[in-house]
Write a protein that binds this DNA or RNA. Sequence first.
DNA 1: GCTTGACTTGGAGTGGGCTCCAATGCTTAC
DNA 2: GTAAGCATTGGAGCCCACTCCAAGTCAAGC
Lengths: 132, 132
Amino acid sequence: MKIAEVSQKFDISADTLRYYERVGLIPPVHRTESGIRDYDDSDLGWVEFIKCFRSAGVQVEALIEYVALYRQGEGTEEARRSILVEQREHLVERMEQEKATLKRLDYKIANYDKLLDVEELGNGGAKGCCSD
Amino acid sequence: MKIAEVSQKFDISADTLRYYERVGLIPPVHRTESGIRDYDDSDLGWVEFIKCFRSAGVQVEALIEYVALYRQGEGTEEARRSILVEQREHLVERMEQEKATLKRLDYKIANYDKLLDVEELGNGGAKGCCSD
DNA sequence: GCTTGACTTGGAGTGGGCTCCAATGCTTAC
DNA sequence: GTAAGCATTGGAGCCCACTCCAAGTCAAGC
């Protein structure tokens, strides 16, 4: 599978795919004789893997480290595991923060709904909520 | 309240607080005669507000727009509401992605646990999971 | 009044994560 | 075999969100 197809399939630009490979976020992709990238199933698996983790905000740095350890093979399992655990912690923290913000956002939106409803009824003039 | 105290209270650097004000993420902060920032309750409210939304990944751009509308006052309620709704959508999408990634992360960690358990029992040699 | 330390400003610098570019090479259709 | 449209590379550039800096001002203690 050539880079253009992969790019389309995963909605990641070819530039980004090359960048990922260059910095070690993805192991070297299989090539044709003439040096053109020809993604095989394993390569596609990595792309999908990275896409998943990147789009959840996992840092490139951590993924690079993980991939490097993976490529080193046996003996690195514990280190790999601890990267994952660390990233899991970050993720959970982020999700909690987001949950709180979502709640607040909903509250604010509900306030605007009320406010706008009132206005619609010709009863304007209610003071807008400030930072709440 | 001077900038150093605010910085400490919210764990945001003084530089960042000034930056926030400069770009319009926070309305102009109250000053002493001599021009030194002296945050009042409303200013602190804004700082808290921005901290909450920023730490959930809401873009500075959107918040600037919101604050600008807020400062324009009446008549901008609908626009403000729609900014919030839009940001809510982004947030929910992000959270869903993260949920999926968390699940995957848990699965991978569990795999490593199993793998490492087996090794501990002197039964090594099981092939590490690739991108799964 | 002088030092110390926190404050001010505008502007430059940084880091992360891409994104774009120029120069060049391969492939396919005509 | 040649033009169009893909691919390759290294390196520069860009955007976001800060972060730091220099040069100067202000405030509190001695």
